[in-house]
Simulated scan of single mutants.
Amino acid sequence: MKNARQILGIGLMALTLSSAYGCELKTKKTESLIAHAIANNEKEANNTVKIALLLDTSNSMDGLINQAKAQLWDIVNKFTHAKCGNEARPKLQIALYQYGNDDLSSREGYIQQVLDFSGDLDEISEKLFSLTTNGGEEYCGEVIQTSLKQLDWGKNADNLKMIFIAGNEPFTQGKLNYKDAVTNAKEKDVVVNTIFCGNYDQGVNTDWKNGAKLTGGEYIAIDHNRQVVHIDTPYDEVIIKLNSKLNKTYVSYGALGTVNMNKQSRQDYNALEMEEAVAVKRAVSKSSRMYNNASWDLVDAIEDDKIEISDIADEDLPEELKDKSDAEITSYIEEKKSERVKIQKEIQELNSKREAYISENQKESTKGELENAMLEAIKRQAKKKNYTWE
């Protein structure tokens, strides 16, 4: 039955692709569209935004890492409202590299891929919180080149593909000329944005601006040590309580179900440890379409047609569903889905009031430096790919 739905879906996609194919703007013949849809299955059915974060984790970068941990959710929440030119909603994938850390291999240029492209928000958060700083040599050209080689950027010219590299040493360090790396990025249609942690003119004089300019990217200088001022609102505590209720709507399955459910809880804890406002932003992300856990949660998996109830072995089910009939399991999942939708709606409604409260009470100068830098660059570059923002 599932195969039949997939075949039918591919046929419908071919008929309606001009209005449902992400931000794809080019006209193609129907015959080639069918072949393309079959070859790429679901992967190309929705437009995907790919962002690689290349973070300097040398001694002086603790402030940068803390900003990245705190402001990840602002970036995710911004993409919740993104639309492609034909009203389709894009997916978001983030990859993470660290460089310039003495704990990394000198043979690898003090560079490490911390996370391949992933849309798993808990995994992204987990990897960010795993970063620590320590000394090091900072080779910007080499880390850009490494990310271009290792990551699957895809060949769809209509997708938005971006690198954000942040650091505070000259962009010219290392044996590999950064100009070769950014030229390679341009050939792959990847925009390189550079974030210099320090004085604007110093970043210009050490080629951070030129590194961005060569791909049409943006150069930004930030004070990475500046404390982000979060505005407490009357809605925060309620949203955090709703987040706890939201977690109870997840139904783990498979070998890694329990592991990932625990990861979800740990990342809630990490966010709350940073600051209550960060926990609130994470809860808002979890109430949005961006937070999908079909790989381990039965509610999302069945909603996305990733699995059939009849195909799940009894040992892969949580204790409360073992030895239950398919009908009983289906009823249980539907109940959890209904609860989740209700809670997510409550969080979104409260967040609208929260954002209005913040707008009235927050000065522009109190916003996060990294957040401002990335969101402004993303919006400007996304516009070129026919994105709009609600």
Rank of each mutant, 00 (worst) to 15 (best):
I10A: 14
L12P: 07
L17N: 14
I34D: 05
T57C: 00
N59I: 12
N66S: 14
K69P: 09
N77I: 02
F79D: 06
C84S: 07
N86M: 11
P90E: 04
K91H: 10
Y97T: 03
Q98F: 04
N101I: 01
N101P: 07
S106H: 14
G109C: 05
I111E: 02
L115I: 00
F117I: 03
G119K: 02
G135N: 09
G136M: 00
T146L: 11
T146N: 13
Q150D: 14
L160M: 10
K161W: 01
G167Q: 07
K179L: 13
V190M: 00
N193T: 07
T194Y: 01
C197I: 05
Y200R: 13
D201H: 13
Q202V: 12
G203Y: 05
D207M: 11
W208P: 09
G217E: 06
N225S: 06
Q227G: 09
Q227P: 09
H230Y: 15
D236F: 04
Y250W: 13
Q264G: 12
S265Q: 15
A283L: 04
R289M: 13
A294L: 11
W296M: 00
W296F: 05
A301L: 06
D304P: 07
D323W: 11
E346G: 03
I347H: 06
Q362L: 12
L375V: 10
A377L: 05
K385V: 06
Y387E: 02
